[in-house]
């Protein structure tokens, strides 16, 4: 095995481990949310997506150049990428529409997109400031 292959194996394994952690955190949040949230509004997914949107640019900026590229990818693509989710977001929105809760569905959709973009900006701003 040459060096390039070694890198290949390494970064994929690291991203996988990141995904292992990120998915578990997301699930943990949804289980905890179910304990106090009974509404039809998908609060857990929204919260995870908001948090991930803030953390992705923030952590990328803070890691700078002193963290190895492999580890950076494990944290950004692995942990944060798996922590946030688009599939649940789509299915939840469609489920709200199909159950006749059009207003709640539209609220969820617009809050996700505008809030997501806002948190990405905030994360960038915070990450770049000392």
């Amino acid at each position: 095995m040459n060096e390039k292959e070694g890198f290949f194996v390494n970064v994929y394994l690291l991203v996988g481990i990141g995904g292992f952690i990120g998915a578990m955190l997301r699930y943990g949040i949804s289980v905890m949310t179910e304990m106090w949230w009974y509404g039809s509004f998908p609060a857990a997914t929204l919260f995870a997506n908001y948090a991930g949107c803030f953390l992705l640019p923030y952590v990328s900026c803070k890691m700078g150049s002193f963290v190895p590229t492999n580890v950076q990818k494990a944290i950004t693509s692995g942990i944060i990428g798996s922590f946030t989710t688009f599939s649940a977001f789509s299915v939840e929105t469609i489920a709200l529409f199909e159950s006749g809760k059009i207003a709640v569905g539209l609220l969820y959709l617009s809050l996700s997109i505008t809030g997501g973009l806002l948190f990405v900006r905030l994360g960038e701003g915070r990450g770049n400031s000392k």
């Binding site: 990428g81 798996s82 688009f86 997501g116 973009l117």
Partner: peptide, 19 residues
């Protein structure tokens, strides 16, 4: 569902790319 597809799709990267 929760594990594979939840991690397979991503919201944060999507928003950052759009930004």
């Amino acid at each position: 569902g929760t594990g594979f597809l939840g991690a397979f799709t991503t919201f944060s990267t999507w928003m950052l790319e759009a930004r």
